Simulated assay, not measured.
Amino acid sequence: MIVPFVVLTFVFPPGYLTRRLPRMAQIATAIHNRLGMQDTPADADQAGGPGDGVVTIMPVTDRLTKAIPFAGRILPLPAGVWHPLVNIAAGPHGEVLENVLVRVQGHIVTGMIIASGTTQPVPAAANPAIDEECHDDRNYMAHIVTSHPPMMECWLTRLIDPAAIDHMSIIATQLKQEDFVLPPVLLRAKWVNSTPAPDDNINGETVTVYLNPVNLNDTKILRSPDFWTKETLAQQPAASDFVKRMNTWMAGWAPVLHDGFNSDMLASSEEQRARLSTDPAAPRPGEGNPLD
């Protein structure tokens, strides 16, 4: 694992390293140019505003499966082939890395991942409500694994308005360029974890998986978010079944994400991870990917 992590450090150097070693930033820029990647300033049109950080547009033709290195750790991936879309270096000094990945069937998005992780410890005071969503009564389900600040871990599932997704202006632009279509309904499965670091700092990671629930035969007519609210699920058996399967999937997938955060993928077997990775929106065998 040392070699890929070293390579990623040069491709996506954290802010504190580029400040101490300016030559590293030049090397990273040269690599980006060589790979056809585009470094976009935060105030560019597709960046969506000054709060987005430093945006790097990724080659969407890359095919990612099983797991990838991420923020000095390991990010397990749900079933299917995932394509990188955007990388973002955020935080006051670029110490928070965000990766956006997309999974498609035909040209329809079946899943999207936004993973956010610290590349160095950050002040705990800057993240006072990191687990706030885990206590929201609009969640379909939420589970608190650990709640002893600054150590905290939880996961949740809920309906989400696609327009409310972080960095949506950047994401929408890139999806449009690739002719990928977002569904009118997205459900969110989110895992949040933080661990203490010296000097009242924390290391943290958030992995949010957005699933398309209306790409299946029994749910394709339920194309309004009104069918998927927590209050109306009882009147929509097909939607209720999808949500139950998503809850069951996330209950099994969250421990795999925890292992990845600790870079301990030996805690489960490859067969277990393959079985647990199959979310209810995952493409079935034989279903086409436009990038194949």
Results as ranks from 00 to 15, higher is better:
V3W: 10
F5P: 04
V6Y: 06
V6H: 06
V6C: 01
V7W: 15
F12C: 08
G15L: 00
L17M: 11
L17Y: 01
R19V: 08
R19P: 07
R19D: 12
P22H: 09
R23M: 09
M24Q: 12
Q26Y: 05
I27N: 02
R34M: 15
R34D: 15
G36I: 02
A44Y: 14
D45V: 14
G48R: 00
P50I: 07
G53L: 06
R63P: 07
L64F: 07
F70D: 05
G72S: 11
G72Y: 11
R73L: 08
A79F: 00
W82Y: 07
V86P: 00
A90N: 13
A90R: 13
G91H: 04
P92A: 15
H93R: 14
V96H: 02
V100L: 01
Q105M: 10
G106I: 00
G106N: 10
V109K: 02
M112G: 03
I113Q: 00
A124G: 14
A125G: 12
I130S: 06
D131E: 10
E132R: 13
E133T: 12
R138H: 09
N139G: 02
I144D: 10
S147P: 08
P149A: 15
M152E: 14
T157P: 00
R158V: 11
L159I: 02
A164S: 10
A164K: 08
I170G: 09
A172Y: 07
A172N: 12
Q174T: 02
E178Q: 08
P183M: 08
A189H: 04
K190L: 15
N193P: 10
N193D: 13
T195L: 14
T195N: 15
A197V: 00
P198L: 05
N203G: 10
V207N: 01
L211W: 03
N212F: 06
P213H: 11
V214M: 02
N215L: 12
L216G: 09
D218T: 12
T219N: 01
K220E: 13
L222T: 01
S224N: 04
D226S: 06
E231Y: 10
Q235F: 07
Q236N: 11
A239F: 01
F242G: 00
N247G: 09
A251D: 12
G252D: 15
P255Q: 09
P255T: 14
H258R: 13
G260E: 02
F261V: 02
F261S: 06
L266T: 10
L266W: 11
A267L: 11
Q272S: 13
L276P: 04
T278Q: 14
A282M: 10
R284A: 15
N289K: 00
P290G: 09
L291W: 00
D292A: 13
